[in-house]
Design a protein around this nucleic acid. Structure first.
Lengths: 230, 230
DNA sequence: CATCCCATAAAACAAGCGTTCAGTGTTAAA
DNA sequence: TTTAACACTGAACGCTTGTTTTATGGGATG
């Protein structure tokens, strides 16, 4: 183990980069070692030679992407703590985003780490606000930040499906069209009135105690339709 | 082609049911024909004999699940048009939900069909309301319903990841804990105040015209942090 | 009874996978 | 110069995959 000048030999880094892109595009099991080797311009054997196995290669990619993103987050700390999701425009960071989304949806340890980290970050934002914005504070802060985390990640997860119904062709196009309405929901919700009263008013009914869980088996916008409502 | 008494031979139906469950659990490429055959109690060759190929088997499953769900939706039309997501408690319908979620995330045609269908249903609910609930109406109705569809599907997509940070063990447990806060967001949003003013008030700022898309490349709660705000 | 059909099983097949192995050439210390 | 270490290739191995082929046995039909 030398100093730290070459944490990874140059070729190994090229293989790892190719692997990140390939995994981001096709998922882990959907990507073959041979594809990665070809993309990196090396032989399949060399991939194993440097990383031991496909699984260990994936572990290296996991660590690399996670570190790259947290580093970027540190640098842009003044812009937004939720920034992880923001700067995925066109740069090389874009495949890192796709990579994380893929691991978010398969049962990988790294995906769980990322989600947990995201929830914690959101919890902090709820407590302290950010850049002049303040968020409502609920009793069960963990559940609240978890719920918001899910809603915040949804657009990235489902953007590919959105293109068909919106006629957009890339992330940028879809988001330009959607953001006004996402922002509207984040600020005011989308339910205007419930059977017994109004919703849009300033009545911040903090849930958690006087709230009955609307539907034991329910899930979504269905929630309002099943119970509650005086 | 006989009348319609036996649209599918009994054994083929058993294979298809086993395939739906297996695909729902492990995804399409993560499930082998041999696994399906074993689960159905038949030989691998018979699976191909009845369906032609793994891909055609998948197509059969797609059609079957979609029809089963729309049929169920028709029967429960009086409960909620978004019901698709609600009755996935423990019954046999549960694997249909997982099946659809899986196809929602891989580039399958059926997943797209389902998403589009969901968006259309939501568009109608926005127009007509449901069971006494009314939703805000925005100019770009399609974009609005698409945005809401994404947010509504997120909890099901990410529920497995939620278990770790919430300590829950199944969909029911997670949702019981989350629904109050999801409902809160659906009704009032989660942003309490923006740098220049308030958000929780009844000021329904319908976006689309006087709204500037907060961030061209942005996506999420980041949106508020990048632009806008006087 | 003979014959065809078809559901079914068992085995074999070709392709692709991750991985291993036996080298080759270069580099650098001894 | 010899030796050892290293990055690297190309072929091959063993295994799993989806699929095909061959064979069997029961039901209907002639």
């Amino acid at each position: 183990m030398k100093g730290v000048p070459h944490p990874i030999p140059e070729t190994a880094a090229r293989i790892r980069d190719a692997a990140v892109s390939a995994f981001a595009a096709g998922g882990f099991s959907g990507t073959t070692v041979r594809e990665i080797a070809t993309a990196a311009g090396v032989s399949p054997g060399l991939v194993i030679h440097h990383f031991g196995s496909k699984d260990k290669l994936r572990a290296s990619c996991d660590d690399f992407v996670f570190e790259a993103l947290t580093a970027m987050k540190r640098e842009n700390a003044h812009r937004s703590p939720l920034m992880v999701v923001e700067m995925f425009g066109e740069g090389p960071m874009r495949s890192y985003a796709d990579y994380l989304l893929k691991s978010l949806l398969d049962p990988s340890e790294q995906g769980q780490r990322f989600f947990d980290h995201y929830v914690e970050t959101l919890e902090q934002v709820i407590d302290e606000g950010f850049a002049g914005y303040t968020l409502r504070k609920a009793e069960d802060r963990r559940a609240q930040s978890t719920a918001i985390a899910m809603l915040a990640l949804a657009p990235l997860l489902l953007e590919p499906r959105v293109r068909h119904s919106l006629g957009t062709e890339d992330l940028h196009g879809s988001m330009t069209r959607l953001i006004p309405y996402l922002a509207e929901v984040y600020r005011h919700g989308f339910i205007e009135s419930v059977p017994g009263g109004q919703a849009g008013s300033g009545a911040r009914a903090t849930p958690g105690s006087q709230h009955d869980p609307p539907a034991p088996t329910g899930t979504d916008p269905d929630a309002p339709s099943t119970t509650e409502g005086p």
